[in-house]
Structures are given as C-alpha cells and as structure tokens.
C-alpha cells in the first residue's frame, strides 16, 4: 500500500505483534519451564522468569532411564535418521518423477502427473489405516523402512520441481542434445546443478517435516528401539501414578526443537533464494 496513515501503521503493527505473542508465548513457557526445578511447576504458579536449573534438567533428560521410554539419545538418533531418510528419499523420488513428467513424452504422461497431483489431497492422516495395513502386511513394523517409506512419496516436491523445470527454456535441453548429452547426462550435468537452490530449500522443509512426524511413528513402532523424539516426549508426560515432571519434559522439548531451529537459522538464506529466484 502506498498510503501513509499513522493509525494504519499502528494497526498493522498491533496485529502483527499480537500474532507474534500468540505464537511465541507457548515456546517461551517451554523455555522457562525447562530452567526450573521439579517443584516450581507443580506448585500451581507458573514462573515467567528463567530459573537456574537448566543444566540439571538437561543432564537428567540425557541420563535418566525411565520405564516405557527409550533413552533420549536413541530417540534423537531415530528422529534424525527418519528425517534424513525422508528428506533424501522425497527429493530423489520427486526430482526423478518431475524429470520424467516434464521432459519425456510417453503415453499416460498427463495422467501420471494428475495422479501424483491428486495425492496432495491424501495425506498420511487420511489414508492412515490402509497405509498401516500395507506396512504391517509387508512386515515393516518396527523398522526404519516402515517409519520412512510410506512418507516418502511426495506430490508437493514433485510439483515444485516440475514448475522449476518448466521455467528452464527448451533450448537448454536441445543445446545439450546437440552437444551430445543423453537424458542421464543432461539430468546430471545441467538439471541437477540448476536445481541446487531448490533442492536446498526443499531439504529444509522436508527435514522439519520428517523431524516433526508424530502420528505415523506412534502407529508403526512398538519396540522402544525405534521410538522417535516426538513420541518419546509425549510418553514422558504420560506417567502413571505420579505427576509428570514438567521441568524435564520441557527440557526435552527444547532440545527436540533445537535441530529444526538451527537448520532454519543456518539455511534461511538458501531457503528463501531457492523459493524466490532462479539462476537463468
């Protein structure tokens, strides 16, 4: 907008600040809670200033062994693997399928595109029972394969790559053909390097997506060896016959938030670049 009215500026800032407060406050509470001792939170009064117990809580989370909960490092390890496999798998599969859809003329090409596109309407939550049945029948419960493979197929990423490939002029492909590059060489030498920023941006989104998975791991894992962080934190809160130890739970939450936060902070530039500009 070109108008410059003080009350409008005030209003926009007010709305934005309200939004920020609403989003940030629970995170702030988690942060504060992770710095207090066990008694501070069960007293009923939630402290709003940081305490001094952060280090103790962290140590406790990292060392403590509880019944029904896997060790923290193992869950973090599982979450990490799950996120990495999903990220790599999704990117690998979607870039190849986008390549096929954009650059090859084959019968059913349009149909294939629409089938992929329609799966956007069928996220895991919608197809969870049939997907679970398939995974169970294939004997993939309690395995990394079961955790990751059903989540790998990705319409979003395929669509993103397709849109990007369609902005690359046809002449580029024709020039490569005249230069003696076959389909694989063109993919490796031209398309992959050009997609670099897109891949980086997708890595950020998909890593966080994989890291945050809760429902699916909850379903397919019964062996604590394969528990992920998101389920672990939930399990820490669900203790029988005792008050949940909110201080350590929140310490675990804060630690679980760290990897995505770090990734966003360090890859922010690439992320924006990948979604906004193309190198042509």
């Amino acid at each position: 907008m070109v108008e410059n009215r003080p009350w409008l500026t005030f209003l926009t800032h007010f709305v934005l600040i309200c939004g920020v407060v609403i989003v940030v406050f629970p995170v702030y509470i988690a942060l504060i809670a992770s710095t207090h001792g066990p008694t501070a939170l069960s007293s009923g009064m939630m402290p709003l200033l940081p305490g001094a117990e952060l280090w103790n809580n962290v140590v406790q989370v990292l060392t403590e062994q509880r019944r029904g909960v896997a060790p923290f490092w193992l869950m973090a390890w599982n979450s990490l693997w799950m996120a990495i496999i999903i990220t790599v798998g999704k990117i690998a599969i979607s870039i190849i399928s986008a390549y096929a859809i954009v650059y090859f003329r084959f019968p059913g090409r349009v149909l294939a595109f629409w089938l992929i596109f329609i799966t956007l309407m069928l996220p895991v939550e919608v197809r969870i029972i049939p997907t679970f049945a398939v995974v169970a029948n294939l004997g993939m419960l309690n395995s990394y394969a079961g955790l990751t493979i059903p989540l790998i197929a990705s319409a979003t990423a395929t669509f993103l790559f397709r849109q990007f490939f369609m902005t690359i002029p046809d002449e580029m492909m024709e020039a490569a053909r005249v230069d003696g590059a076959g389909p694989l060489k063109f993919f490796r030498d031209i398309l992959l390097p050009l997609s670099r920023t897109n891949i980086a941006a997708l890595c950020v989104i998909l890593f966080i997506y994989g890291w945050m998975q809760y429902l699916w791991p909850l379903l397919v894992t019964t062996d604590p060896k394969y528990y992920t962080l998101m389920m672990g934190v939930k399990r820490m809160a669900a203790v029988a016959d005792a008050d949940p130890q909110w201080n350590t739970i929140m310490a675990a939450v804060v630690m679980a938030m760290l990897p995505p936060v770090l990734i966003v902070i360090f890859m922010q530039r690439l992320f924006v670049k990948g979604l906004v500009e193309t190198e042509k």
Binding site: A175, A176, V178, D189
Partner: peptide, 29 residues
Amino acid sequence: EPAERDIAMVFQNYALYPHMSVRQNLEYG
C-alpha cells in the same frame, strides 16, 4: 540423434548453460 549428425546450432536465446563458466560451456560438447 542431433549429436550424431555432427552439426552445431546457435539458438535465439543462446541457451548457454547458466551454471557453467564460458570455458565449460565451450568444452561441454
């Protein structure tokens, strides 16, 4: 195939490979 015909083509929009240096562009074929 175009490559087997031993011809070279100059395109209207040049179709240079944007991620390669000029030297790499010349060398690629």
